[in-house]
Design a protein around this nucleic acid. Sequence first.
DNA 1: GTGAAAGCGCTAACAC
DNA 2: GTGTTAGCGCTTTCAC
Lengths: 340, 340
Amino acid sequence: MTQRATLKTIAAQTGFSITTVSRALAGYNDVAPSTRQIILATAEDLGYYPNLTARQLQKQRTDTVGLILPTHGPRYSDPYFSAIIAGIGDELAQHNMDLLLSTQPPGPDELSAYRRMVEGGRVDGLIVIRTRKQDDRIAYLSKTRLPFVVFGRSDLDIDFPYIDEDSEMGFYHLTTYLLSQGHTRIGFISAPRELMFADFRFAGYRHALQEAGLFCDMQYVVIGDLTRKGGDIAARQLLSMPSPPTAIIAANDLMALATISVAQERGLQIGQDLSVAGFDDIPPSDIFSLTTLRQPTYDIGRKLSNLLYQLIEGTPLEDRHILLKPELIIRGSTRPPRGV
Amino acid sequence: MTQRATLKTIAAQTGFSITTVSRALAGYNDVAPSTRQIILATAEDLGYYPNLTARQLQKQRTDTVGLILPTHGPRYSDPYFSAIIAGIGDELAQHNMDLLLSTQPPGPDELSAYRRMVEGGRVDGLIVIRTRKQDDRIAYLSKTRLPFVVFGRSDLDIDFPYIDEDSEMGFYHLTTYLLSQGHTRIGFISAPRELMFADFRFAGYRHALQEAGLFCDMQYVVIGDLTRKGGDIAARQLLSMPSPPTAIIAANDLMALATISVAQERGLQIGQDLSVAGFDDIPPSDIFSLTTLRQPTYDIGRKLSNLLYQLIEGTPLEDRHILLKPELIIRGSTRPPRGV
DNA sequence: GTGAAAGCGCTAACAC
DNA sequence: GTGTTAGCGCTTTCAC
């Protein structure tokens, strides 16, 4: 493989024009069968493969979708992300499209990563995940002609297609369930406030408390950064209170698992001395018998790709806004508090 | 943003030629300062952004690296993959390169995904992960001019740059450690035989047994598919033996965690009744006090990108073959067997 | 300093 | 049926 074969090479070799070669290869039926055969044979012979970049330039279409992962660094190992990427990738493969991936932490440079993909003409559409308050990515994209879909809602006054979990409802049910078991001091480890879902999840928790006539004591609410480490710190804080909670709900499983770890370290029996629940149902959660709200991340990835594909193709969307109901998975980590 | 600005637009607007505009924007110093200023100003004004596809076609360089994930489906949630992707992505970002990602299960179509990227001219280089025996991806790529780096070694008689874990040594040490604790019946849950590392890991285990004068009874060796599910099945098989092992080593953490889960279900105390160890040190492993061999997946991703970058740039590589030593992390899941 | 011209590899409108 | 021409947006000689 010294020099890659192009249409030109084949044209020279067969004596036909580049155009004819192009059409023969594209399968147009205005090419003489004999000609086609010759062309196909030499293409095969030369190991011809079309230059996709050239085609993209001409067709003004890249068959590529962009995704910029909104965080980075070694601690970036949330199983949540591999599941969503797998879902996105598998669905795109169905449509012969690829995924152009960048990592860029939220901050001043993030938008230029978006510009690069959008204005550089590298993608036909984008997927945005983990929405934030006043999300400038959405503000930017909506000013663009480019199709995009979002995992998560926004507080901006902009309409765009999205998929989201109704985590408010999820946490409402979860909290209600814990209350029904007799818990009254329920700690809450929130997500960082800048994330859209942080408020939803907290609202569900608060709503359930209020409905039960309980005061939502903010001492029992701490914020974690969704990582193991963050959950660890938050859990320590909650368990060190003079009157510690008998149950802790974390905004995601990673922090819930960290909570379990801290509790065990302190000799607390999960389920007996402390109930713990999370959100996501990531793979290891079942091993821990962690009560959680299941989010079908892989399927969400597929669905996101599919929506975007339709948008790119110009197919009218059935639903621009999809709100999924998380499923409450009750396991052994939540039981009635001691003495009840 | 109706129609994107191009060099042509700016040329028309300023009265200069496309060439001059191009040079001014590229920062060449053979452009009059006054001219440059005008051009820069109108470019800014029009919100000009270069079309990357066009540039790629002209420069014959894409600033993109390809990665094809060798599996797919919903069960694809190995934290291992998100860590490596994050590492690859972060390092590429340093060099202003992007990652083109596809998912394609091993099989007849896999190679066409590679052809698409390589012969379609979509990438400047490729990263191959999770090598297999007689790996046709490597055979294919080596016949190509395109730079590529590999995570894992190969049994093919081909030289290529790679990074790998010396998992044979790792498992040798791990097994020796278990033997030193007094275990004599040590089960082994292997990776699928077609994976290169399966043999290395098994060899380390076997070597340690033989060195201790023990017969490597193949009844104690079962194969799992590296998933939770696979580990579950394998663990059940081992624990149902008439004379079950007192310790089980799994080829990866996911299967080790599954083993813990099965053992717990059967009322076995981990560490007391059954010792368990794995490989990877994925995030949840520490919570389970799982003894394991740590593999710095994120850093490996970074290193892979970096090697590939150097290859693409034509920088001579210091080491074409990097063999990392996995670190043995001893935790509570491995203790001397009962009665010792 | 600046511009004209060629070309990266491909597709598509239009003529013959 | 097939070829000519033009053009996607950019970079890069090479004149002037």
